[in-house]
Amino acid sequence: MKIGILGAMEVEVQELIENMENIKEETISSITFYSGTLQGKNVIVARCGVGKVHSGICTQTMILKYAPDAIINTGVAGSLNADLDIADIVISDNVVQHDFDTSAFGDPMGLISGINLVKIPCPKELVQKIKEAADTIEGTNVVVGTIASGDQFICSGEKKDFIVGNFDALCAEMEGAAIGQVCYINNVDFCIVRAMSDKADGSAHMDFPTFTQIAAKKSTQLINEFLKCI
């Protein structure tokens, strides 16, 4: 089984790359792809860049060039749920694009043109395997649910309420649903893993870099545990 792993920022994939063996590098469309083994499994790791366009380009390139059996997007997100604190983990069972809006034409908020879905589903078996790996990490609150993506850094209560009210999402970030859309179109399994780096309301602004490091390390730990058990 070959697993593709994507992260938007260097901090989200750096430790994974550093621990890979038999590593080969190739740069395509300004994105460096690292292929090799991690925890004895075949992997391709890439830093896609921030936002839906970057992540979509990276995902499609990875699929065409390396043909992974599944793609996991690891990283950090802003919590939209009062019960989710810094470094808690959300595993997607579906993803939505909260900024996709053709409601002026009578469509539901978030309906993606071309695939006619609001919530793009993740394969249940893959989600369950990642959840089982997450449950081995001590002292970590792990939940499964909707992850919302958009080309916006969410930092206001009003926007949080909008996303939760329309999509019942647990956390917000900027790449996962674009990755999910590309995988869905290509019939490639995917799942999004996010550790909470902030509360998406501006309250952690001054400590965001510190919290991001903590959260990214927790996501990396989960990926390693998942690879051990597949």
Rank of each mutant, 00 (worst) to 15 (best):
I5M: 08
M9V: 05
E10Q: 10
L16I: 06
N22Q: 13
E25Y: 12
T32Q: 09
T32A: 07
Y34C: 08
T37G: 04
L38F: 06
L38Y: 07
G40M: 00
V50T: 09
V50G: 04
G51E: 09
V53E: 12
S55G: 11
G56D: 13
T59V: 09
M62E: 04
I63E: 02
D69S: 08
I72W: 13
T74P: 12
T74R: 14
T74G: 13
A77C: 07
L84C: 06
L84T: 04
I86W: 08
N94Y: 06
V96R: 01
D99C: 08
D99Q: 07
T102M: 13
F105D: 03
D107A: 15
D107E: 14
I112P: 04
L117W: 01
I120D: 02
E125P: 00
E125K: 08
Q128T: 05
A148L: 05
S156H: 02
K159W: 00
K160W: 04
I163E: 11
N166V: 11
F167H: 00
F167A: 01
D168A: 06
C171E: 01
A178T: 04
Q181G: 06
V182W: 09
D201R: 08
G202F: 12
G202M: 12
P209I: 08
Q213T: 13
Q213R: 15
I214R: 15
I223A: 14
E225Q: 12
L227H: 12
